[in-house]
Simulated assay, not measured.
Amino acid sequence: MQNQPPHHTSALVLFSGGQDSTTCLAQALSRYPRVETLGFDYGQRHSVELQARTVVLRELRERFPAWSERLGEDHMLDLAVLGKVSETSLTRDMAFRMEESGLPNTFVPGRNLLFLTLAAALAYRRGIQVIVTGVCETDFSGYPDCRDDTMKALQVALSLGMDHRFLIDTPLMWIDKAATWRLAEELGQASGVPGGGQALVDLIVEHTHTCYLGDRVHRQDWGYGCGSCPACGLRARGWERYRAVG
């Protein structure tokens, strides 16, 4: 894995407690001497992910000692206002469907824009150079705020607006969910922990949360979830492809 330039010594990971952000966190821990995490409570229906965050952080510390030394403070911001201004199936009790715009109603307008702006403000205060987010333009639902062009524009705007050179790192931008599973395995293998590849995959299966309905009752091969929402569908298909070649 390619190392970052020497001046990139710290990273702030947008960490939801899901598969993607956990993989991004593992990669950051393999690259940067100092890593902090940031989560958001925006009134999401699947608020169980906020509980998953603390469990995943604890498990990472316990199972990967070298990473534990690098893993610093965890931050949580209350963004209830986002839920109040969003009429979406992630912030309201409504069925998942496609809108006339061609986007699914799981799209929360402005979510990633707001997340990254606040992350940059926190990173500025904490003296952190890199902001890591798990957005992806390969296996995604067409969200415009997950696109590479959006991330590049935000990087420029935030760096100019705060007069601080930020790097927005998007490790998953051009890989699908199967490759995300493989990346987690590779990161675990490189961690120095015996059996670390399988250990990290098992941690993601057992403790991360992705299901939009917040289902922690039904245990699938790939983890807990309803098995029918869009997030579960992406995770399940990625798992099947990953296992088929593994």
Rank of each mutant, 00 (worst) to 15 (best):
N3R: 13
H8P: 01
F15H: 01
F15K: 02
G17K: 05
Q19A: 14
T22L: 09
C24D: 10
A28K: 04
A28W: 06
S30M: 09
R31P: 00
R31I: 15
P33I: 14
E36D: 10
E36I: 06
G43P: 06
V48L: 09
V48G: 07
L50E: 01
T54A: 14
V55P: 03
R58Q: 14
L60K: 05
E69G: 13
L77H: 03
L77A: 06
K84H: 08
S89K: 01
S89A: 15
L90A: 08
A95F: 07
A95Y: 01
R97T: 12
S101Q: 08
S101D: 11
L103D: 04
N105M: 11
G110M: 05
R111C: 08
L113T: 13
L118A: 04
A120W: 01
A120P: 13
R125G: 11
V135T: 12
C136P: 02
T138I: 11
T138P: 00
G142M: 04
P144R: 01
R147T: 15
R147I: 10
D149R: 11
Q155G: 13
S159H: 01
G161I: 09
D163M: 06
D163T: 14
L167R: 13
I168K: 02
M173C: 07
I175G: 04
D176G: 11
W181H: 03
V193R: 11
Q198H: 15
L203W: 04
I204A: 05
L213R: 12
G214W: 09
R216Y: 05
H218D: 03
R219K: 15
D221G: 10
C226P: 06
C229W: 05
P230C: 04
P230F: 00
G238I: 02
G238A: 06
R241S: 13
Y242C: 01
A244I: 03
A244M: 00
G246P: 04
